[in-house]
Design a protein around this nucleic acid. Structure first.
Length: 303
RNA sequence: AGGGGCGUAGCUCAACGGUAGAGUCGCGGUCUCCAAAACCGUCGGUUGCAUGUUCGAAUCGUGUCGCCCCUG
């Protein structure tokens, strides 16, 4: 029995939310958000979190599930999202995974090895201190010793991943290079993304950022800060938030903050597109074909 | 009008007289427990223009155009 899953991914501001809701209504199902920022309560405007009106009564999962001060990672995400996915399947529904965080989406669609070695704060801190004291090259040399294959693939400057590789070795006794990097699908998924011409996508991004300021992005950030949420929190590193925090500190004009946010969002969108190109069988829809009807057709002809 | 300063990559700036370098932007990419993160690669300039000096000029001289400051 096929275990159908619909994935609606793509760059930020490409209209995923509306399309997903259209589909959910048409297919009588629910949406599983795959977005690393929508999980945070209180971050609404800057994350373009769908409002109740936009949700049109469709149940959305994995939104507003943690506090702004919490840390969160893909594994937390998969742990929470997979049961929802399975439950929808068991009810005979086609779950809709919708979001822009490709890493999160992959954690649901494919067999992943990272469950094997959980994060270990103590080990991470240890290597972070080592990095601080002796520098990147010394850290990289350590990895070369224990896992030369992974060192071959990583850049010494990518200390985040170098530390993770060291962590995997130290905690599990196994090399990261022994993990399989194959994307082995767990579901019969259909993945679609709306393929806007780059210029058009950028125009949409700009318009959306302007809209965020009108809706009170600065005020939202101020509220978070006034609530005592540290600017170094993971959630405050999100685009739209970190720039406003910095701008408030420097006394920047809103137009300056806005320009930087637009630029960072463009960069982000580019990274998303690069990432999604790797999704097996991803269907890039022209904007005019980004409708629930078209997607229904694709689902039918695929299975 | 007179005096001074400046004109170098799309932008901000470097470069003892030895055929121009960074950062940023733009573009491309990586990604298996912080992923809106982290990281990598790459394009790019007949040095405002003209002329002179010199073996050799972004650099020195002259002229010219443009911008800025001061004085009147």
């Amino acid at each position: 029995m096929p275990r159908k899953v619909l994935v609606i991914c793509g760059a930020t501001a490409s209209g995923k939310t509306g399309l997903a809701v259209d589909c959910a209504l048409k297919f009588n199902t629910e949406i599983i958000s795959a977005d690393s920022q929508l999980i945070y309560k209180g971050l609404n405007i800057g994350t373009a979190k769908p409002t109740a009106e936009e949700m049109r009564g469709v149940k959305h999962h994995l939104i507003d599930i943690v506090n702004p001060t919490d840390t969160f990672s893909v594994s937390d995400y998969a742990e929470k999202a997979l049961p929802v996915l399975e439950k929808l399947l068991s009810k005979g529904k086609i779950p809709i995974i919708c979001g822009g965080t490709g890493f999160y989406i992959n954690s649901l669609l494919f067999e992943f090895g990272y469950g094997n070695t959980a994060a270990n704060e103590r080990v991470r801190e240890k290597y972070a201190e080592f990095l601080e004291k002796y520098g990147k090259d010394a850290l990289f040399d350590k990895l070369r010793e224990v896992d030369p294959e992974t060192a071959e693939v990583l850049h010494p400057n990518d200390t985040k991943r170098v530390i993770r590789a060291l962590e995997i070795f130290e905690v599990s006794g196994k090399k990261k290079s022994e993990q399989s990097d194959k994307l082995i699908p767990k579901y019969d998924f259909v993945a679609v993304a709306v393929d806007y011409p780059r210029e058009e996508l950028y125009a949409r991004i700009n318009a959306r950022v302007d809209e965020m300021f009108k809706l009170g992005l600065v005020e939202e950030v101020e509220t978070l800060l006034n609530r005592g949420i540290d600017e170094n929190c993971q959630c405050m590193q999100a685009i739209g938030y970190k720039e406003v925090v910095l701008g408030l500190k420097n006394g920047d004009l809103r137009s300056t903050m806005s320009d930087i946010i637009k630029q960072n969002t463009r960069h982000y969108a580019k990274r998303q597109l690069t990432f999604f190109k790797k999704t097996p069988n991803l269907i890039w829809l022209e904007p005019k074909n980004a409708t629930a009807d078209k997607i229904a057709g694709i689902l039918n002809e695929t299975y």
